[in-house]
Simulated scan of single mutants.
Amino acid sequence: MKTCMYCGTEVTVKETVAHCEFCQMDLAASEVMKNSERKKNVVKPIVDLSNIMKSTKELMLMSTYELLALLQLVRKDRSMAYDNMIQVKTLRQKAKDENNEVMVKSIEETLESVIEDYAFVTRKMWVIENILAERMDTVPARITDSYLERFFEKVQSRKSTPMLFGSSKATVNH
């Protein structure tokens, strides 16, 4: 029996469209399950900073766990970018104080690049935070390794029991 992944109700299949009467919506093929089973979450536990180069649309396709792990990495990277920016600004000020115009010009070119890196990482952080806020209604202020471990365990232990009432296969429609 083909069923809805959201409520477990039997769906009506017409050509390439499945319709759930209880949810009052059409379902994509990936949203149709068998025998009231729940859809399994597929999470890749390994996330690296290279994911920062993905477009916003691509980031939106990542799981919540993956985004949380990426946000943790991006925040660390942003902190390092900020520290680099402060160090370069300090060097520039030191060169200005010594009236070393050649050094000031060289440092300012470096500073421009460092500021661009910081701005890029900051904007990506905002994108990830906003995607998470849409999904979770909040964004953790601090993401630790133990927070990610607990979150991952919750995702993996999500109920996999079929969505059925007792031993009967009764369907409740509204």
Rank of each mutant, 00 (worst) to 15 (best):
M33S: 02
Q87T: 12
T110H: 09
D137K: 08
S168M: 09
F165N: 10
L49Y: 13
Q24G: 14
T12E: 15
E98N: 11
M163Y: 05
M1P: 05
T9H: 14
V42K: 06
S30Y: 15
D117R: 07
D83G: 04
L59R: 06
V172L: 14
Y82A: 08
L164C: 04
A69G: 01
E109R: 04
G166R: 13
K89E: 14
A133M: 14
D77I: 01
N173G: 04
E129P: 01
V17D: 04
Y147H: 07
E101W: 05
F22V: 15
K89G: 05
S168A: 01
E134Q: 15
F22G: 00
T144I: 05
K14S: 15
A29I: 07
I115R: 05
Q24N: 15
E98A: 14
R158P: 10
S50E: 08
S36P: 03
E15M: 06
V102C: 00
I128M: 00
E37M: 10
R142I: 15
A119T: 02
L71H: 03
L59M: 10
D137T: 01
R38F: 08
T122Q: 07
F151E: 09
V11S: 04
L70K: 02
E101L: 05
H19D: 02
M85W: 05
N100C: 03
Q93R: 00
C23T: 10
E58I: 08
Y118M: 01
E134N: 13
E134S: 15
R78W: 10
P162W: 08
V32C: 07
G8E: 07
H174D: 12
D48K: 01
S146V: 12
T171R: 05
I143L: 04
T56R: 13
E149T: 06
I143Q: 03
L164T: 12
C20D: 09
F152Q: 01
D97V: 00
F152T: 00
D77Q: 12
R38K: 11
K57H: 08
A95Q: 07
M80C: 00
N51R: 11
S157P: 06
D77Y: 13
Y65R: 03
P140L: 10
R150P: 00
E37S: 10
S113C: 01
S157F: 14
V121Y: 10
K2R: 14
R123W: 07
P45Q: 04
T90F: 01
T16R: 02
M5H: 13
K169L: 10
G8W: 08
A95R: 00
K105C: 01
E101I: 02
A28I: 12
E101C: 03
V102L: 03
L68D: 05
V139K: 11
E108S: 02
E153V: 05
Y6F: 14
E15L: 09
Y118R: 00
P140M: 12
V47L: 06
A133P: 00
S157R: 08
W126Y: 11
V17E: 11
A170G: 00
Y82G: 02
F152H: 02
I143N: 00
I46W: 05
R135L: 15
L70G: 04
S30E: 15
H174S: 15
H19F: 15
